[in-house]
Design a protein around this nucleic acid. Structure first.
Lengths: 102, 102
DNA sequence: TTACAATATGTCAGTTATGACATATGATGT
DNA sequence: ACATCATATGTCATAACTGACATATTGTAA
């Protein structure tokens, strides 16, 4: 099972326990994915808090609606860099980002 | 002045005050670069703590000595993703990563 | 000095992430 | 039902990142 597929599956709930349970993810892989998911959720939360649509946020950060959707979905093609930059653009502080990934 | 150049300059000390002072970086750009630098320094610290050479670390994370050097130098071609993955591989926890970027 | 190990810097071909677009699905009202 | 807005998903050309390599610089010991 390749990495892409794994991550794609991983982020879809299957809420029975944690992600790493039956997909054979290493501790580091799990931690990485968990951080990405935490940032995804934070992004959605902050966007909704500000009552922005995905399209509006996309414009603000010079991206596209589809990429915002992918960010919020935890899509494996989205980098932590992009998530962080987007959150910073939404006014989230470094400190809060630190708390988010922890 | 393009972004690449800026970041490249930025990370070289010029220790007079903070980075953003005379380079016209926005608050978000500054925060982003500060996070990257913090991760760079953490990486070097952790590597040295374990008494590994850059070449040894490179092997462990399936990268190359030159890329490790660039990571530690805060080179703009290095992603936060790679820094985070490397630090996780060195045994740094999510919590510690959170503290590092804050 | 010389020699050697470690680190830094430059380049480049291959890979991955990105924005943009089209289209599909969902949600909410009329 | 239909129309409209928001979100999701798939694809693709371009841009950005990556490992590898060569080479340069720095450090340190003989």
């Amino acid at each position: 099972m390749d990495k892409r597929k794994k991550e794609k599956l991983a982020k879809k709930g299957w809420k029975v326990g944690s992600v790493a349970e039956f997909l054979d993810l290493s501790a580091e892989e799990s931690a990485y994915i968990e951080m990405k998911l935490a940032l995804s959720e934070k992004l959605r939360g902050q966007r909704q808090r500000k009552k922005l649509t995905q399209a509006e946020l996309a414009k603000a950060i010079e991206s596209s609606q589809s990429r915002v959707a992918k960010m919020e979905a935890g899509d494996p093609t989205v980098s932590i860099d992009l998530l962080m930059k987007s959150l910073l653009a939404l006014g989230v502080s470094k400190k809060e980002l630190g708390r988010t990934i922890s």
